[in-house]
Amino acid sequence: MPAARSPLVPLAWIEAKRFARHPLFLTGFVLALVFSGGEYGPAELDHQFVPAFFVGLFGLVVAARLTASTRRSEAVVDAAPVSETTRTAALCAACLVPAAAALIVVVFFRLVLAIFYDPRPAYSYGVFTTGERYVILLVLPVIACLGAPLLGVAVGRWLRFPGAPLLVAVALFVWGMLAGYRPSQMGASTWPARILHMLTPYTAWIEHNGSGDLWVPTVVRSLTGSPAWFAVWTLALCALAACAALLHGAEGRVRRAVVRASCVAGAVAVTSLTLAVVTGYSVTHDSSSEGTVVSDSRTPLPPHP
C-alpha cells in the first residue's frame, strides 16, 4: 500500500495561488515595479524601501486576510482531516510568493539601472563594500518581503479584532522608521543608538543631501551596523514569526517541536543582533567626491549646492 502523501504540498500550492491572485498583493507588486522603473530618488541604497513597503507591508495585510478568511467556516474546516498546524504551514509556505515578487522587483531595478542609466559615483554607496551593497539591495528586501507576510499569518491566527493587520502593518512601519532614522539624530555612535538602529526588522543604511529624482547627492552618510549580520537577524525574525503562527492550535509533539524551533530561532536572533551591532560599522562616515571621513551624526549634512 503506498504511503499517504503529505497534504502540505497541495495545500501550500493552493494557498500560493490564492496569495498570487489577491488584488491587494497584485496592486502592491505593480506599484513596486512602477517605482523601480527608473532611478529611485537620488540614492540607490534607499531602493530597498520600495519592495519592503509595497510588497512586504501589503503582503502582511494579504497574508492576514487569507489566514482569517477560513474563520467563518472554522467548524467545517476543523472537521477536515488536516490539522491547523498543517494549514498554517501551508500559509507560511505561500509567503514565498511575495518573497519571489520582491526578488523580481530588485532584479528588475538592477536591470533598468544597468541598461538605461549611467553608473553612480562610487561615493554614493558610502563605505559599504560590494558584497554589503548586494546584501542591502538584493537580500534584505527579499527577507523583508518574506518576514512581513509571515507576521501577517501570525496576526491572522492570533489577533481576532477588526483592523488588526493594518494596525500591525502601521506599527511595523513606524518601528522601522524610528529605528532607522532616529539613532542618527541622537548620536549614532553611542551604544543605545547602535542597538536601536539594528533592533528592527527594517533599517536605513544611508542618509544623504540629495532631493527629488534628479539630484545626485554630494554627501552620503553611511550609518552604523553590519548589513550581513542584520540579514541573519531579520531571517531569524522570519523564523520566529513562522513559529508564532504555527504555535496556534499546535498540540503534543508538534507543539514541543515548534517551541524548540522558536528557542533556536530566538538564540540565532540574539546572537546575530549582537554581532550586527558589535562587528558592524561603529561610527557614521560622510563620503563625498573628496573622500570619506568619520562624522558626527548629529551634525546636519551640508545643503546640496
Binding site: F161, P162, G163, L167, V170, V174, M177, L178, Y181, R182
Partner: peptide
C-alpha cells in the same frame, strides 16, 4: 465602537509621537 475608538486612539498615538519629534524629519 471598540474598533472605531481603538483606531482613533492609534491615530492619536501616532500624532503624539509626531508631536514629540515635531522638529525632526520624521
Amino acid at each position: 465602537w471598540p474598533t472605531l475608538l481603538g483606531g482613533c486612539v492609534a491615530a492619536a498615538a501616532l500624532f503624539g509621537i509626531a508631536a514629540a519629534l515635531r522638529h525632526g524629519a520624521l
